[in-house]
Structure formats: structure tokens, C-alpha cells
Design a binder for these strands. Structure first.
Lengths: 133, 133, 133, 133
DNA sequence: GTGGTCTAGACCACT
DNA sequence: GTGGTCTAGACCACG
């Protein structure tokens, strides 16, 4: 269900956070539902449990899930709302990057065209393995 | 003329590269014009000369400037063209981030609105010091 | 009659111990009175019988109840006295936390005010699920 | 300058967070000042660098310090304000524990007496190595 | 030198 | 079984 890219500049634990957020957004992990256990998912992804623990801790910090030691980790009731809220914050980042592009000589019209061409799929977002910042 | 944020996730040398590119685009550094010397600029910015050296090396690698041993470092004649070219590559990154936002529940229309609201200014671009990946 | 929070940092069995102590203090569980059976209460609370067993064992260890094999588990005659005694020990913990607050910039006067504002109610005490140590 | 108790129930990294907060509060770590490096302090305390990294990450999350990769970690300008703010939150926890004590048969007057007897010192706060929750 | 990430492997308490 | 913490040791990029 999740896929990671070990060679990406984006840390593995962040890739996992992003992907789980996407899955929650898509309703594939529902509120109150248990997330995969640290050990099980670590084995499945072929990564160290500590790395996954870090990802889960971050999700918990954001209020997207809660851990119940001894019994598991569960998606928060208001997880979707939290994600939508944080998405609003990311708009600033979006505008920043768009501004950079515009300063580089790309027109707003070209950016709007690029937006239209996007089709949403489900995969690891924001992979930027190349060294072009 | 340049400003750096040592707490940004973006490496200092990349911040400098971006900003010099912006200045070139805006015509403030003109082709054939000399760039500030490593030592002088390092002092001005309060950073390590090695860091600045790295930034200049990156600019050279991209073909934006050339060093003339003994007399300094000069903006390339085709610097603007090179920047425009590389901007096209960044469109992919732009689409990736936009896709991420859309998966998070933001509509394309909202993104287009955000684009319209942008006014190009001159500052350090792409500061992403926050922990919102 | 009892309520547990599986997401609390406080182990479930400790939550139960605390709450039963509170009920004893309030006279809702009287000396010589029988406590609910492990199986029945486990079902009612939706928890594992082993967890409840652990809570009862702890109560016995403290001398708050005694098990009479075959006929159930009963509140000790001196349960209230035992609880009062252990409360004295907790004063140290109280002072430790108060000291921490004072070091954080809160005045003793504010703490006294906070004390005055307390009204005793009946609920799960000491829930500290937040990440404020 | 810092001291940890490896046998405490409180995780080492939380002990460090608390103590550094105290030191900031006392003005021993001043805003803009660099904190000890991860490696150096880990050696000094005899703990693993990862553990310290976790503590520092938590401080950063709270907004008490900022890391500048490659050059160090610095106390935030508004660190003291942040600590004072979070102390206000802790008042709720304080009231919760006080309420528990009162339900256990201690009078408010006794608590006020306990408060008066406190003298603020500088040491690891909240050590609760015993198993009396 | 700095911080950041990751792996491997262990131990603990709780359910 | 679950999550949480810790150690040991390694590698990387950045300054």
C-alpha cells in the first residue's frame, strides 16, 4: 500500500508521513481505524522499525493519529480536518515557488496551463531526487 | 544586495545561487559584469568563504558565469537564456507540489486564484524553513 | 461507574486503581463490600481481563482489598486509612510539580489561586495524555 | 551543567528537555546563544547522540531553539515567552493532580502549606522513580 | 566541526 | 502481540 524511495532527498520518514496523509485523505485509512503496527509495516517496507516509529511520532504530533501503547495506533477522528487545515498553510509555499518560477521568466499563463495538465494519482508525492533545487 | 537565512532547510550556497539567478533575471547583474569577489561577499554576508566558493562553483557549472583567473568572475553572455531553460525543468517540481496540494483537498481553482494573487518581488526565494514538507 | 482512556499515558490498570480508590474515598465502595468480578467488569469496560486482573492485584498489594477465593473480592476494612496514608506520600510529587511550575515563571500566588478554584468531582484522575511532561 | 537519572521513569530525552527549559528560563542559555553540540553534550552526559538528538528535536518543535545544519543550534529569540506560555498550560495538569490529592483526603490547606514550603532550586525536575503514580 | 538520517539490535512496560 | 526508549555505529550534506 505504501512505497518508499530510498534514494530520494526526502527522508524516508517524511515520505511515509506524506503517503499516510494521502491515504487518510482518500479514506483508505478511516478515523478510529488502526494503522499497521510499527514492526509489521517496517518489515513490509524493508526499513528499520525506528524509522517508522519516527514517521508515526510525527503523524501523532500533527494530531493525525493517537497511540494506545499495548494495543495499537489509531487514526484520529478529526484527521481529515487537520490535513485540510495544514494544506491551507502549504498554499504559502506554493505561492513562493510559483513566484520563483515567475521571476525565472515563466509566465502565469504557463503555470495555469501546467495546473490544468495535472491528473491526481496515488503515489509518493514530491520526489525530488535530482539535485536541481 | 543578497540576504541569507542560516536556519533555512535550503543550504546557504543554494540560497545564494537562487538569489544571484534572480538578480541576473532582473538585469541587476548584467552579462559580462563582474560578480563580487568571494572574500568581499563572504564578509558582507557573514558566511564562510568556502560556502560562497561552493555557490560560485555551482553557478559556473550551470554556465551562468565564468571565472577569469586573476581578474575575477563574470556573468555569462547567455546567462538569461540558461536561466529560462532551467526554469522549464522546474515546472515538473511545480506540478508535483500542486498535485500534492490537490490530493490534500485544495481545488485547482484555489491554486489558480493563488497564482493570480502573486506579485513578483525581489527577495530570497523558496525559503522553506518551516517543518511542513 | 468507571471510565478509561486507552490513549492516556497512564496505563489502563493504573487508571482503574486510581478510580476505585476514589470511589472508596467517596464511600461508593464501602468496606467489606464486594468489588465487581473481573470478567463482568472487563466486559463492561471493553478491556482485556488480564488488565483488570493486574489492577485488582495492585489494589490487593496496597491492602485496599482482599480476595476470598470462591466468593469474590472485598474492600478492606481499613481501606480509607490506607488511601489517606498513601496520599501523604504523593505530597512530594505535588511539590515537585509545583516547583517545576515556579521555575517556569509561575508565582506561588497563582498556584494558590489555582488551588482555590478547584472543585472536586468524580472522574478519572490524573489523565496526562498530552505531551507536556 | 545538566544531570540525568538513567533509572527514572521519565525518559532521558524528556529530562533533558525540562532541564534545558529551566536553564533558558534562568537565563543561563540566552537567546541567540548556541546550545552545546549534539556530540559534545552526548559525551558529557554519557548518553547516545541519538537520544540527545531527540531531546533537541523536541525543543525545536516547541520553538525553543532552531538548528542551522553545519553551524549549530541556537536558542530562539522568543524562547522565554514560549516557556511561559506552556507553563500556563501546565496549570491544568497541576489542578488535576491537586484534585486527585483532595479526593484522597488531603485538605486544600495542607496543599497550600506544601506550596509555602517549596524552595526553588536548579536540578532535574519531576523525578518519579518510585512506582507510586 | 555541525546537524540529520538510518540501520541493527536490544530492553521495557502494557494489553 | 503492541508502542516506547535507548545504544552503538555508520553515512551524508553542509559550513
Amino acid at each position: 500500500m505504501l512505497g518508499i524511495d530510498k534514494f530520494s532527498r526526502v527522508p524516508i520518514y517524511e515520505q511515509i508521513v506524506s503517503q499516510i496523509e494521502t491515504h487518510i485523505m482518500l479514506g483508505e485509512y478511516k478515523p478510529e481505524q488502526a494503522l499497521p503496527s510499527v514492526r509489521a509495516l517496517a518489515v513490509e517496507l524493508g526499513i528499520n522499525p525506528n524509522t517508522l516509529q519516527k514517521a508515526y511520532a510525527e503523524l501523532e504530533r500533527k494530531g493525525l493519529c493517537q497511540s494506545a501503547p499495548g494495543s495499537g495506533r489509531f487514526v484520529s477522528r478529526d484527521a481529515v480536518a487537520v490535513i485540510k487545515e495544514q494544506a491551507k498553510m502549504k498554499l504559502e509555499q506554493f505561492k513562493s515557488i510559483a513566484g520563483e518560477l515567475i521571476r525565472s521568466g515563466i509566465t502565469k499563463e504557463e503555470l495555469v496551463e501546467a495546473l490544468k495538465s495535472i491528473t491526481v494519482s496515488l503515489s509518493a508525492p514530491g520526489r525530488e531526487g535530482s539535485d536541481e533545487a
